[in-house]
Amino acid sequence: MNGEVVWDGSKQPQPQPVRKPKKRGMALEARKSFKKHWQLYLVVLPPLLFFIIFKYYPMANAVLAFKDYNVIKGIWGSPWVGLRNFKLFFDNPIFWDLIRNTIYLSGYLLLAGFPIPILLALMLNEIRSGRFKRIVQLVTFAPYFISTVVMVSIIMLFLAPRLGFANVALNHLGFDSINFLGEPGMFRSIYVWSDIWQTAGYSAVIYLAALAGIDPTLYEAAKVDGASRFQKIVHVDLPGILPTIVVILILNVGNVMAIGFEKVYLLQNPLNQSTSEIIATYVYSIGLLNANYSFATAVGLFNSVINLVLLLLVNGLAKRLTSNSIW
């Protein structure tokens, strides 16, 4: 320890390096880093290859959308057809049905599913009794761990036309049975409310954490001013978690076109298809089931691009309006 100090003291201060052009400075920094961290570069290689092969190579493969895919010639040998696949999609009468179904479903999910976790968190935050609060949190968080297949299985068992719990209950009350999953008009509600049942407790956690981070002196000030509990929620809690709300809202709005395939596909049947066919399920059925690769890629690419534009737009808007953004 002592020697180190002496050694340090005897060392002359390094002369300040002459300012170099930025490019050479970067090259130097890179060379130094490679020499020093060559092991880390080896470590990072396999995961990086993963991203290149399974995420970026498919992006290159998306040129399929502008080609007429031929199995023998392969992706790169197949003839170019320009925008024909896109034109076919836009001219297809199903185009507007798909857009409408996709937007209505995620719009409904956003309108109903976004405020509920916030309300849940605000209510839980009011409760001082540790035990009740813990139980409610534990129980409402639990359905998050149920898989999509099990979730849809539960929905189907509960809503089954003859023996389902919902219809048995309806019959007891003197009503006729309803074939819930066969009604196109009910598909969206079933999807959205089961989703809320499953994820509200999970989503509330992030708001609860934000609420826990609010400056306690604000509550004391509110108390001195004689604010009621409700007024405290409106004037302290809500402004306190507003940044969190905005970020989550950006993420949700930005993903409106990216609504998940998994649950919709499992809930889908020929009877409810007029409302349950969304872009993602359509890509799967024409692409993988009918092997119409080029057309399905075009539809998928259209969806990805719209989604990207939407995300950037919403983010930019939020930046301008509130100075909260995800980038």
């Binding site: 991203f51 092969i53 399974f54 995420k55 970026y56 190579y57 498919p58 992006m59 290159a60 493969n61 998306a62 399929l64 992706i75 930005g254 993602a280 890509v283 799967y284 692409g287 993988l288 690769y293 399905a296 890629t297 998928g300 690419l301 969806n303 990805s304 989604n307 990207l308 995300l311």
Partner: peptide, 15 residues
């Protein structure tokens, strides 16, 4: 890769 992807079919072709 979080905000943009090649899509279902192109990924399937790689696999």
């Amino acid at each position: 890769t979080m905000i943009f992807s090649g899509g279902l079919i192109p990924t399937y072709m790689v696999v």
